[in-house]
Design a protein around this nucleic acid. Sequence first.
DNA 1: AAATTGTATTTTGTAAACAAAAAATGTTTT
DNA 2: AAAACATTTTTTGTTTACAAAATACAATTT
Lengths: 227, 227
Amino acid sequence: MADRDPEPAFPRLRPASLRVNVADLLRSALLQRRFEPGEELADSALAKEFGVSRGPIREALIILAEEGVIEHLHYRGFRVPRLTANDILQINEARLPLEAQALRLARPRTTPKDISALHKLKDALLKAYTDSPEGRHMTAQPDYEFHSYVWQLSGNPWLVAGLKRICLGRFLCVSAKELGFAPQDFAAIEALHQQYIDYLSGELDISAEECVARHLQSYQESKRESA
Amino acid sequence: MADRDPEPAFPRLRPASLRVNVADLLRSALLQRRFEPGEELADSALAKEFGVSRGPIREALIILAEEGVIEHLHYRGFRVPRLTANDILQINEARLPLEAQALRLARPRTTPKDISALHKLKDALLKAYTDSPEGRHMTAQPDYEFHSYVWQLSGNPWLVAGLKRICLGRFLCVSAKELGFAPQDFAAIEALHQQYIDYLSGELDISAEECVARHLQSYQESKRESA
DNA sequence: AAATTGTATTTTGTAAACAAAAAATGTTTT
DNA sequence: AAAACATTTTTTGTTTACAAAATACAATTT
């Protein structure tokens, strides 16, 4: 993770409140598409499932709503949003310049250790792609983890927070065939992520913008086909 | 606000929960520097002040923490963060490419009505600057409102959310003399904001990046002086 | 003075209730 | 049958009081 601190010694074990635990579990479940778009998340039902009271559940749902992962309507509760093709275009519009900046800042901070970590994350993504059941490619979580690692390499927590705010909701829908955003084939995914690694290792000599644009364009194109 | 919808007819009156009301009031109070950096926000005390129970107060504080406006430590409560000079540099690093994108997208969508609205917001900012008591320029709120308007002109809600997540915390400290981020004089503020208006109206022919860079640089320089 | 212990104090989570709004249901009217 | 209306039922939002956990602080011991 490119930590410049004088050795981590032990991985920081952070004290977490119930709401953070619940939010983490729900976010992970959403990335795994254990909830469908449009599905409602009733606090009383979740309270029973998690075995805690409604308070922390509500707080967790508010966290996720602020992250843009779920939406909330007054007196109508929380639900998984339905993102349209246009939503994705707008998300990419915001993501492009910010992820490019992340790449620029990350490049001089990237160590060989980071490169091998990224290779592992890429392999995990490809494995998830091939292991997924027919058609519906469950790549949201590993894809998010790959990009999240790159973002954090920038060493800029505000940049990370901004990208998370912009993109997290999109990662929930990436594997959705109904939106037509699954990249066409294995080789394309492989190449598009390898490109990021090559840029960071200094081997690829294109602009950061170009690098991200290519990555996002592939999704854009598969969208146009399905339209 | 550059709404392309077929006439707003009536301004949308939204039903708001207590937590949203409280969050709005607290955010506004923070922008007005009614709380000092480092100050603690105890939910029980706020519950008494607002005359509501702890539940909604706590939810409001969680919203603000997710927005990056206040910070939270487990079993230690909520507090106003102390931003360092380096924090501001990193915030600007993330803000630059994203606000530039907002300007690019906003330009073709800007109407004469928007231009006059921006002039009014600029004047309000300048008035707040001159009306402020000796030295501590209370420009955070009007400054935020000016930029927020520009962001929304982009017509991209994710872009707005990302910029808000990145910048909101910084606007709380802008008027802080102790950080040395107050622009040198009236004329400089005037010019830097007029520059935005000129870019959007199409009169100024420089890149959006250049436009934002100049704006942010002035703060950077005043910081270096005080260091 | 440093480390330990014990005692407030604060934060966090629980539980049971109630109020308010929306959704669902059934009834009447046209 | 369709529309309008009134009435339940459910869900969400809020309040209250209390218990549990962690921290902060003072007192004690070494």
